[in-house]
Amino acid sequence: MSEVIVITSGKGGEGKTTSTANLGAGLAKLNYNVVLVDTDIGLRNLDIVMGLENRIVYDLIDYFEGRCKLRQALIKDKRLNNLFLLPAAQTRDKTAINAEQMKKLCSELKEQFDYVLIDCPAGIEQGFKNAVAGADRAIIITTPEVSAVRDADRVIGLLEEMNLPRPKLIINRIKPAMVERGEMMNVKDILDILGIDLLGVVPEDENIVITTNRGDLVILKEGSEAGKAYSNIAKRLTGEEVPFLQLKTKYSFRESLKRIIGIRNN
């Protein structure tokens, strides 16, 4: 019943780490036991995004190389007691681990946790292959830009070759006002291009920057749109059907029309 889910995108900076942290917290809030594994060896960030950077004693490679037990490398989250982080090593590189080790780790973690979320490094080389090795399924993150969508397509193709089930898509950092003007690809455009199913849409939200600055998680912040989007995605991951959010634009068409012909709403 436990599941290993890899969060990947091809291109860097699309929100893999932020999404991993928030979805992990979302699943933990739904009372599942969750562990997040940072596989971005040498460029670790999941720890700082979660505000756990000062608690690291051992990391993934310390465990692989026998310097600690698995439970010693697991860091308990400071907010949710059923959420854990297995940090990447910062002073090594992608070649320090291999796919076999990751497979073994994933099956060990599955014994203790309901969900194992793997934060994948950018790129499609060794680091990607390691991250994907033990996964049961994948989530693709993209933003509505041509370079991100193209790279996402490449990753979808590679996952297909690895015989993983067809991944689901999170469209991140969409700007509703730009979509309305036709200056940003909309959800349907991106789904048409990539040909996979939608898992969720996360709007651009400055709360992401603010919470990350503080080592907080947006999903735990009341009233943020991105947080709401992540909560819904976490529920969808567990199989619950949640309707997709209607994203707020500045003005609706009717409101815009009223404004231009001079009728005010109040």
Binding site: E145, V146, V149, R150, D153, R154, G157, V179, R181, G182, E183, M184, M185, N186, D189, D192, I193
Partner: peptide, 21 residues
Amino acid sequence: KQSKDLAKERLQLVLIHDRIN
């Protein structure tokens, strides 16, 4: 043409070639 339509068309074209490898 809206810029998003250009993005979509350009992507669809380039991805056909990306996909056949």
